[in-house]
């Protein structure tokens, strides 16, 4: 018998055109995102100027060198970078599908708000009379500091906790760095990071509504926090690049691109340094700060026999699970960076 009512429209096509593609393009157009087109352009300009000035080149030569370092074929089309792009495409889909299962920020914020009301019944609205601009400035700064600190702390955890390091290795296995290496992360790590975002934003919002008794305007430019904008517009994308811009003495306060490149270095003396993102004060405090110095000739990646074929999707997605499930004991007993020990046993 013929069925009366059948749905024939292929849903996967709908999903790709209505969910996936818009999310993907937003990554390159939304000023809240690191690799949005304007920031990439700014990074280019900064790279070229820096090469021209620091290396005392003519502008023409600086331009050519800059292009080579930023978009030379051996960099943007290396095996490592091609893996970055695949991860970007796949992770995007996975995160869209996972997002309904992640805890909602509003739920967390409301819970915190009511908790605050419960434990500080008289604290509610204590700064309600202060000028609006003070509320806005403190909120914007607090959010930036708290966000930056939480990134530092989570990143530290990703390195120091063996199970997490297994997953974070996906990011560190990059051998060439391009701005898109920021997407080279294991989905488990992405989920942890988005939980971090949920907590930070929920705490900041509920706390400020609680003490100021009303909603507060974030200071923004192009719809994004001015501080985040400043960070992204001043070459944040160069953190994942082969342009080693260093900040000299102020690297004590601000993390330079070269410092993050050093974080990716495969040399032992550079391991577990510079966990911070915009600010290096947290690293300074935790004694994990490492200054950069000029051309360091770094080589990137995780060096071990096992990572011979470390750009395959299998290795990037599933090996961490294999490592965690099969060798939990070894993992907890071994120092995170000594992957040889762990991996030899797997093989």
């Amino acid at each position: 018998m013929v069925k009366f009512y059948e749905c024939t429209k292929p849903m996967i096509i709908d999903w790709i055109s209505q969910e996936y593609i818009p999310h993907l393009t937003a990554s390159f157009t939304d000023p809240q995102k690191r690799v949005s087109i304007g920031y990439l352009f700014a990074a280019f300009i900064i790279a070229i100027i820096w090469i021209t000035v620091a290396k005392k080149q003519t502008f023409r030569r600086g331009f050519v060198l800059g292009l080579k370092k930023m978009i030379g074929l051996s960099i943007i089309w290396s095996k490592s970078s091609r893996a970055d792009y695949k991860l970007l495409l796949i992770n995007k889909a996975l995160l869209i599908l996972l997002s309904p299962f992640l805890v909602a920020r509003l739920t967390v914020a409301t819970a915190i708000f009511f908790y605050l009301k419960e434990i500080f019944p008289y604290g509610s609205g204590i700064f309600a009379d202060s000028p609006i601009w003070i509320a806005s400035v403190t909120y914007t700064v607090f959010l930036f500091l708290f966000d930056d600190f939480s990134r530092f702390a989570v990143h530290l955890g990703l390195h120091k906790i063996p199970i997490l390091w297994a997953f974070h290795k996906t990011h560190h296995s990059a051998e060439t760095l391009t701005p898109f290496t920021v997407f080279r992360a294991h989905p488990v790590e992405s989920v942890i990071f988005s939980l971090r975002g949920t907590i930070v934003q929920s705490v900041a919002v509920s706390l400020f509504i609680f003490v100021f008794g009303t909603s507060i305007e974030l200071l923004t430019i192009y719809g994004t926090s001015i501080l985040l904008f400043a960070f992204n517009a001043t070459g944040a994308n160069l953190r994942h690049s082969h342009v080693p811009i260093s900040y000299g003495k102020i690297e004590k306060f601000f993390m330079s691109p070269a410092q993050h490149q050093l974080h990716h270095s495969s040399a032992k003396q550079h391991h577990d340094k510079n966990f911070g993102v915009a600010l290096s004060i947290w690293d300074n405090w935790a004694k994990t700060l490492h200054f950069s110095h000029g051309e360091m000739g770094l080589s990137f990646g995780v060096k071990s026999e096992l990572y011979q074929n470390n750009h395959s999707l299998f290795s990037l997605y599933l090996r961490p699970f294999q490592e965690v499930i099969k060798y939990p004991k070894i993992n907890s007993e071994t120092k995170p960076r000594e992957e040889n020990v762990v991996f030899k046993k797997i093989i």
């Binding site: 509003l106 914020a109 409301t110 989570v154 990143h155 929920s202 509504i209 009303t214 719809g223």
Partner: peptide
């Protein structure tokens, strides 16, 4: 009655929260 919260969270977006280095 805790309304502003939603608007503030919306404004923050989820843009940079999952990005890491």
């Amino acid at each position: 009655q805790t309304k502003g919260m939603d608007a503030m969270l919306k404004k923050l977006g989820s843009g940079s929260s999952a990005e890491n280095d």
